[in-house]
Simulated scan of single mutants.
Amino acid sequence: MRRRHFGRAVAGSACLLLSGALWAGSVEVSPVIASLSANHAIEAFTVRNEGQLPVTVQVSLMKWDQVQGKDVLTPTEELLSTPPLFSVAPGQSQILRVGAMHVTPRDGEIAYRMFLTEVPPPPQPGFRGLSVTLRLSIPIFIEPAKTRSPQLAWRVMPRADGGALVDVANSGTIHAKILAFSLRDKESKGVVRQDTSQYVLANNHSQWSFASFQAVRPGDHVALDAMTDTGEVTADLVVQPQ
């Protein structure tokens, strides 16, 4: 079972207090992704406090869309969390249930994000530091009624300054997650690599820009190697005009 830690998810983002102390989250959450359906309308998450002090966690739920490859989050009442605010004692766990109010199968997957925000305790008398709350985001999907697969189409286009744009469009009924990809010209002289954890929702696209890739022109051939959450992709692409 995969788990996610507040501290690990924000490595390097623990708050540095002006007093010189270092504070990091100690909350473990599993699972780290959920899929809901008519037969599985509620998901149970385990939130565990591995620290030495009580932790308070606030839950917020957002509808997740993408516009021009950018994430758009809006508050939603289509999902419900129980409890929405809770405290966990050291070494203890809390079961958090999240369910869909109405599961109506659609042709495409519906996407949401659940945010778990660690609420800092009241400052001690005389405290003059700076604290930063830690926030964890977990994707939640409602499965489509029909075919459940992403359909990815990759394109490479020249930039006006000589670099390259890499675009991936998902015409499938569910999301895809791009983990990494590399791009090289036919002589393997120009190579770019991108490590990412970018989701491409159904009927959406994502794009990356590379100034360092050697100049490409429409009609040139480039080789693509990509890793996604459904497997590896290898393709010979023809550079297209924008």
Rank of each mutant, 00 (worst) to 15 (best):
P84M: 00
G129F: 05
Q124L: 13
P123T: 08
V55M: 10
R97M: 08
L152N: 06
T76W: 11
R97I: 00
S149Q: 15
R106L: 08
R135W: 00
Q66D: 05
P139N: 06
T104L: 12
P105D: 01
N39F: 09
R97A: 09
R106W: 05
L61G: 10
A44L: 05
L80V: 15
F115C: 00
S149A: 14
V47L: 07
G69M: 05
S149E: 13
P139L: 03
G91R: 07
P125S: 09
V88A: 08
P105Y: 06
G126L: 04
L116I: 07
P123W: 07
T56V: 02
S81M: 00
R106P: 00
D107N: 09
R106V: 01
F86L: 08
W154M: 04
L79S: 06
I140C: 03
Q94D: 00
S60C: 01
A153S: 12
K146S: 07
L73M: 11
M62R: 13
H40V: 00
Q58R: 15
E43G: 00
G129K: 09
P83D: 09
P105W: 06
V57F: 09
H102W: 06
V156C: 05
V103S: 05
Q94H: 13
A38R: 15
Q151S: 13
R106N: 10
G99H: 12
G51M: 00
G69S: 05
Q66T: 08
A145F: 03
G91L: 02
